[in-house]
Design a protein around this nucleic acid. Sequence first.
DNA 1: ATAGGGCCAATTGTCCAACCAATCAACATG
DNA 2: CATGTTGATTGGTTGGACAATTGGCCCTAT
Lengths: 237, 237
Amino acid sequence: MSVTPFRPIQGRRIFEEILDQLEQAILDGHISAGDRLPSERQLAEQFNASRTSVREAVRVLEALGVAKVKPGAENGAVLVEKPDDALRLLLRFQLALRHISIASVIEFRTVLEPWSARAASERATDDAISRMQAVLVAMGNPIVGPAEFHQLDATFHIEIARAAQNDLVVLVLDGARTSIERIMLDALSRVPDWPATRVRIRDEHAQIVNAIAKRRAEDAETLMKRHIRSFYDEIGL
Amino acid sequence: MSVTPFRPIQGRRIFEEILDQLEQAILDGHISAGDRLPSERQLAEQFNASRTSVREAVRVLEALGVAKVKPGAENGAVLVEKPDDALRLLLRFQLALRHISIASVIEFRTVLEPWSARAASERATDDAISRMQAVLVAMGNPIVGPAEFHQLDATFHIEIARAAQNDLVVLVLDGARTSIERIMLDALSRVPDWPATRVRIRDEHAQIVNAIAKRRAEDAETLMKRHIRSFYDEIGL
DNA sequence: ATAGGGCCAATTGTCCAACCAATCAACATG
DNA sequence: CATGTTGATTGGTTGGACAATTGGCCCTAT
């Protein structure tokens, strides 16, 4: 086990140089979230590069969830304000390649969701708790089918992660859930007794929110752990 | 709080179509990790698209840590075997944009590293434990400076995450650490008494490995939690 | 027979010029 | 004042061209 002082020599490509300069510009505060980048043609001129190279750099930013691009005058590439689905594409491909397994994604949630519930119990603002309760109300509507319910479930868990006030946890937990969204939906649509399942899940959510609102961190963590496990058990994963 | 059944209409671009088809090809097992993609020109012909569109798709795959590209005959785009630094670029930009904070990355580690140590205590193979001990030996060399030590420290934590046998945890924990690597190195180089620090950190590592080897999960978790906290306290973060 | 150098083919990297499509603001028109 | 039109700007796409890199091949000298 030795550490060589050598580092690989790799020909830097132009679009990588552009990416580095853009990153530095962001770090230096010259451009920040919400700002619009110059047009591809202007960037090409400023970097003294071709439009193709600039496009490749922009394409990468888009794939990383850093920028969103729209054609049209007054539009262009805009640095995103909230990195919602930054990890979505990445995890989808990593799953496809079997570099990560569905089981590991599920286990990942069983670790971080309970932590989120605990942290939320200690940090949640009254506003955050109100938003959770609003989701509960929406879930109480007997009309909602599995697909809409799943959307509400996603919102619920995101709200808790946000209340835990850890940006990175929000990011990866959201990514972990959406990366296996399709599989979950398939499984949900095959649940034998949907109305009963819906009521039970909503009930578990209600208990969790209650624990968070009463600042019972230990209970919130335990309830969440049980909730996640029973959920995946129910849909057979 | 209502759920509309509408979804945004977005003009699909050619490179996105190509990405989808490539993902499907991977899911269907037509191509898998380690395989070499057809050349850009061949892909352009098969998709009936221009080389530029194919290039943008390949560029995205590269940014996601899915493929590595090298010019030259017999080379080309190869699907990576291990997604080592898939998250590196993404987290770097998310950090630059202040979408995630350094504090959240550190807290993230204080949650998942102890869990890894616990899981490793229950799941580690003898081989994995041997690799951890090998890292300890290398760390015992008084010659190693902060930079090399940090590299060994990275290897140590990766080995534990691997022993915990959760692919996703390995991925995100590695990404979390490398995303703030530069900051950590700067901080490490300013440690007042480096020899003492080195010995202390190695000692903590040794205790953790010992707990894992003896399958004392509770101890491993506690020791790791203390280790991570004291580490960041020491370098003033 | 083998080691080494040099050539060649295939591939990616880059650039360019042009055109298409989408978008929005300003203007014209009723 | 509402509506439709137009023009400018922007990203999307294409095809072609040349440079740089790599690896395999042959050929020669030892």
